[in-house]
C-alpha cells in the first residue's frame, strides 16, 4: 500500500467562545492519494471550511494529527497552495505581479518570477490580461489568477474553499471545465470544498460527505466517471445517478436526529 499524500487521523476542533463551546469537527479520518481530487460536501455550517483551513495551517486543531508525505503539518507552508472563496488578488498589483508576489515569497529570483508567472497565466488562459489590475478583471478571471498564483510555486497540494462560490452559473461551469482540464493534464492532489453537488461530481475522483454538529465525515463516494470529462457528461444518466446519491447522503446527514445520536 502506498503512503497517502495527505493523511488525517482523529482530527477534532472545538471553538471556545465566552459563553459556549462549539464542537466544529470530531474524529475526522481522511486520506488523499497522490494526484487524487477529493471534494468535501455537506450542509452549511458542518465544518468544511474549518477542516480546510486547519489543513492549510491557518487554524489550530484541538486533537488528532495530519501529515503531508508523512511530515506532520505544523502551520501554513508553501507545500500547500490555497485558493480562497473571497477574491484575494492584491489590488495594487497587476495579474502578473500578483503571481510574481507569491513566487518572490517562495524565494525565486526576478527573472524566474517573470517567466513562471507568465507560464501560469497562460495555463489559466489569461496571458492577454497579464498587465491588468484586479479591478479590471471579472470575478472568474480573478479566481483564475488566484489559481495560477497558488499553482505557480508548485505546492504538493491545492486546497480550495468554494473558489467558484461567488460566480454566476455559466462562469462557474467554465471554471470547472478549466480546472478539470488543468488537473487532467498536470495532475495535482486537490482538496476542494463546495456545497454544489453537481460541481463535486463533475470535478472529483472521490466525494466525502460531512454531517453537522459535530462536523464529521459520514460517507464517501468513489466517482467512477471516466476521464477526460467534458460538460456534456453532466447530461448522462450515470452522472445524474451519482448526483442523486450524493444529494441524498447530504440530506440524510443533515437531519437533526442524525446529529443527535452522535
Amino acid at each position: 500500500m502506498t503512503e497517502p499524500k495527505l493523511r488525517i487521523r482523529g482530527l477534532g476542533k472545538t471553538f471556545h467562545s465566552d459563553k459556549r463551546t462549539v464542537e466544529a469537527l470530531r474524529g475526522i479520518d481522511l486520506d488523499i492519494a497522490l494526484n487524487e481530487f477529493v471534494c468535501l460536501v455537506g450542509a452549511s455550517g458542518c465544518g468544511k471550511s474549518t477542516l480546510l483551513s486547519i489543513v492549510a495551517g491557518l487554524q489550530d486543531h484541538t486533537v488528532g494529527e495530519m501529515a503531508i508525505d508523512g511530515d506532520p503539518i505544523l502551520g501554513p507552508g508553501l507545500d500547500r497552495g490555497v485558493v480562497f472563496q473571497s477574491y484575494t488578488l492584491l489590488p495594487w498589483l497587476t495579474a502578473q505581479q500578483n503571481v510574481e508576489f507569491a513566487l518572490r515569497a517562495a524565494g525565486k529570483d526576478s527573472a524566474a518570477c517573470r517567466a513562471i508567472a507568465r507560464e501560469h497565466l497562460e495555463l489559466v488562459k489569461l496571458e492577454n490580461f497579464a498587465g491588468h489590475y484586479p479591478a479590471e478583471l471579472s470575478g472568474g478571471m480573478k479566481q483564475r489568477v488566484a489559481i495560477a498564483r497558488a499553482l505557480s510555486y508548485r505546492p504538493k497540494m491545492l486546497l480550495m474553499d468554494e473558489p467558484f462560490g461567488a460566480l454566476d452559473a455559466l462562469t462557474r461551469q467554465q471554471m470547472q471545465s478549466l480546472l478539470t482540464q488543468i488537473w487532467e493534464e498536470h495532475k495535482l492532489t486537490v482538496l476542494f470544498v463546495t456545497h454544489d453537488v453537481e460541481e463535486a461530481v463533475f470535478l472529483a475522483d472521490r466525494i466525502a460527505v460531512m454531517a453537522p454538529s459535530p462536523g464529521r465525515i459520514v460517507q464517501q463516494f468513489d466517482v467512477g466517471l471516466g476521464r477526460p470529462r467534458h460538460e456534456d457528461l453532466m447530461e448522462t444518466p450515470e452522472f445524474m445517478q451519482m448526483q442523486r446519491q450524493v444529494h441524498r447522503a447530504i440530506l440524510d446527514a443533515a437531519r437533526p436526529q442524525a446529529g443527535a445520536e452522535a
Binding site: A56, G57, L58, G77, L78, V82, F84, T88, L90
Partner: peptide
C-alpha cells in the same frame, strides 16, 4: 483572507 494569503506564502 489577505493576511491568510500571506501566511500560506510563509511570510
Amino acid at each position: 483572507d489577505f493576511i491568510g494569503l500571506g501566511r500560506t506564502l510563509d511570510l
